[in-house]
């Protein structure tokens, strides 16, 4: 595991971190605009997936480039840098699992609504409100 040892780097690493975070923010905002604007529920789901992926990218950027002052060392942890990188990747794995379950159930709900009403338009689905 020698290759896992972290190396402290200068401003170049911080610039890469900021670049990845800005890309994640841009993708998240584009996805959010799509969720608000589009009326087709399938496309709204796609935009939610895009937002989840933007968050995954942010997690991985923080797993690779770790700001030193926010890393909290836990007791008995030989190298908090490695455990921080691992926990970032684990979060991405669990977000992927949750997204897969969410898409299966959500598309099932859209299919059921389509069978019931024969049209899909988010603005017309207000049965629960009335």
């Amino acid at each position: 595991m020698q290759a896992l040892i972290a190396q402290v780097q200068g401003p170049a690493a911080a610039q890469m971190l900021v670049a990845y975070l800005a890309l994640g923010l841009a993708l998240f905002v584009i996805g959010g605009i799509g969720v608000v604007l589009r009326r087709n529920p399938v496309v709204v789901f796609m935009c939610i997936e895009l937002m989840l992926n933007a968050v995954n990218l942010t997690f991985l950027a923080f797993a690779r480039y770790q700001p030193d002052q926010w890393r909290t060392p836990t007791l008995g942890d030989p190298d908090p840098t490695i455990s921080a990188a691992m926990s970032g990747q684990m979060m991405v794995i669990f977000v992927m699992a949750v997204a897969a379950a969410e898409v299966a159930v959500g598309l099932g709900i859209i299919m059921a609504i389509f069978r019931m009403r024969n049209e899909v338009d988010i603005d017309d689905m207000s049965t629960l409100k009335d």
Binding site: A3, A6, Q9, A13, L17, V18, L25, G32
Partner: peptide, 28 residues
Amino acid sequence: SIAIAALVLTKFIEPMLHVPVSVIGDEY
């Protein structure tokens, strides 16, 4: 959306330029 993005970019992401950052090795 652009306002929220600008807020996050200036208040949260931009300060990251000035903090010391560790890079983990490629094998992680």
